[in-house]
């Protein structure tokens, strides 16, 4: 009799702990869900502002589902004072060192512009930023100069940007 009582007490206690934990976590989820969504939207906006500046207005994301350009996710048309100045492409790829998701601006002349890394889980992440992406954005390193101490990461960035540029050209861009 006491054995059965012990089992009941054990399972009731465990069930109580499990359900109160589920309740607490659900509560935390309710509180933080909207904030997380807002963070993601704000991060995208901050990333876009890095490409063509905060004076530009950016349209909504247009998804890209082209199998030949599998790394491109979407693009945002950008314009300054209602004058289209290019598109901001979001692309993501991975190599054996980690993943990269970036925003890159491609002007209406199909030239690659600023690069902004959204996620950079490469093993040499800070080397990639300090020796390639940062200097490239500041105009001090050529786009093809990928030997930087995080060469594989730089090659991945270069390939993603080239994919965006080629997609742009293939769409007959430049109107």
């Amino acid at each position: 009799m006491s054995n059965a009582k012990k089992y009941i007490l054990t399972s009731v206690t465990l069930g109580a702990i499990a359900s109160s934990s589920a309740l607490l976590i659900g509560l935390a989820n309710l509180i933080t869900k909207d904030q997380i969504k807002k963070n993601e939207a704000a991060q995208t906006r901050a990333g876009l502002a890095q490409i063509y500046g905060s004076n530009a207005t950016y349209g909504d994301a247009v998804a890209i589902n082209d199998k030949n350009y599998s790394h491109l996710i979407c693009y945002y048309p950008a314009s300054i004072d209602n004058d289209p100045v290019g598109n901001v492409f979001k692309a993501s790829g991975k190599n054996e060192y980690g993943d990269i998701t970036l925003l890159v601006g491609v002007s209406t002349n199909n030239e690659a512009g600023q690069i902004y890394l959204i996620t950079n889980t490469q093993s040499y992440a800070s080397t990639l930023v300090n020796n390639y992406v940062g200097p490239y954005n500041n105009g001090r390193v050529e786009f093809d100069d990928v030997s930087c101490g995080a060469t594989h990461g730089a090659e991945l960035v270069r390939d993603l940007v080239l994919e965006a540029v080629n997609w742009s050209i293939a769409q007959g861009g430049g109107n």
Binding site: L14, I17, A18, S21, L24, I25, A28, N29, I31, T32, Q35, I36, N39, Q43
Partner: peptide
């Protein structure tokens, strides 16, 4: 279970306020 609960809560709060 107790520790996992607190870790999940802390994870969600960090995701929201210190992304």
């Amino acid at each position: 279970v107790i520790i996992a609960t607190f870790v999940t809560i802390v994870k969600m709060l960090t995701n929201a306020f210190l992304p």
